[in-house]
Nucleic acid binder design. Structure first.
Length: 272
DNA sequence: AACACGTGGGC
DNA sequence: TGCCCAAGTGT
């Protein structure tokens, strides 16, 4: 849930999930669509699908227990190098090189003296993080958490709180006179994109009690001749986008291809 | 290696 | 207001 999503926005959903599914077996025992529905508006709903798939793999391959090694975690759906290291370190106390966006930024400034880390994670960054990691297991876990928190709370992307930074005296970036970034980060476009249409379609499917016929996506609500049960609001939002038929088609095809939707009785629904 | 993939808070 | 960006991953 935390992948590319701020902690404060994850917390309420996370609490709900753990109340409903305290164990991997609980989640694995439900349809994948329930995971997507319960994901709510967290964003990147494919993560819900993968979390469900990971729960299933944990039940099938690990006796329902979340594995405790980096390699086994990495093999789970939706678990990449960051998540595998973070779970091994923070849940199991292992010494792992945890590198998230916060740690990357702290290292870039404090050690490398640049305003921002590279656009994509590099081998050099991993080597640096590994070299900085304390040898002792417990200390390494605290180190990972501390550097991550420093980045999240003090050494932030915009307007870093250098005056309040506990390690400002050893910051290479401050010492260099706070040089600006050497590149301009690529903005994520949104308005008018397939992503926006996918999001609007999925918002409809999350609330739908029955398969949604293609007509309902493509025609104005007024033309349907009736008020769609429960999905009027997201459906109106989708139509407001006024996307071209081919774009809507791409969005629907993409959702099917990703397993976020499936056809049933001639309509679209979340996966069973 | 570059790109696609959601959403909402903050400035 | 629009833009930036957030505990990344898979292709």
């Amino acid at each position: 849930m935390l992948q590319q999503t701020p902690v404060v926005r994850v917390l309420p959903v996370w609490h709900e999930w753990l109340k409903r599914w305290p164990t991997p077996a609980g989640l694995a025992g439900e349809p994948a669509g329930e995971a997507v529905r319960s994901w709510g508006r967290l964003g990147y709903p494919r993560r819900a699908l993968r979390l469900h798939a990971a729960a299933t793999a944990i039940v099938q391959d690990h006796r329902g227990e979340v594995p405790d090694t980096y390699a086994e975690l990495l093999a789970l759906p939706g678990v990449g190098s960051y998540t595998a290291a973070a779970v091994a370190a923070f849940a199991y106390g292992r010494r792992e090189t945890v590198v998230d966006t916060n740690i990357r930024r702290v290292h870039a400034r404090l050690v490398s003296g640049v305003a921002l880390p590279a656009p994509a994670l590099t081998e050099a960054e991993m080597r640096l993080a590994a070299a900085l990691l304390p040898d002792h297991d417990e200390t390494s876990v605290r180190w990972n958490a501390a550097v991550m928190e420093l980045g999240a709370l003090v050494c932030t992307a915009r307007a870093p709180k250098c005056a309040a930074c506990p390690v400002r005296d050893s910051c290479a970036w401050l010492a260099a006179g706070e040089p600006p970034p050497s590149y301009v980060p690529k903005g994520q476009s949104w308005h008018g994109t397939d992503r926006q249409v996918r999001g609007a379609v999925l918002a409809v499917l999350r609330l739908a009690e029955a398969p949604v016929p293609p007509d309902m996506f493509q025609r104005e609500p007024a033309d349907l001749g009736f008020a769609p049960e429960g999905i009027g609001v997201p459906l109106a939002a989708l139509h407001r986008l006024n996307s071209a038929p081919e774009q809507l088609g791409r969005a629907l095809a993409g959702l099917l291809a990703d397993g976020l939707a499936e056809m049933h009785d001639g309509g679209y629904r979340l996966p069973a």
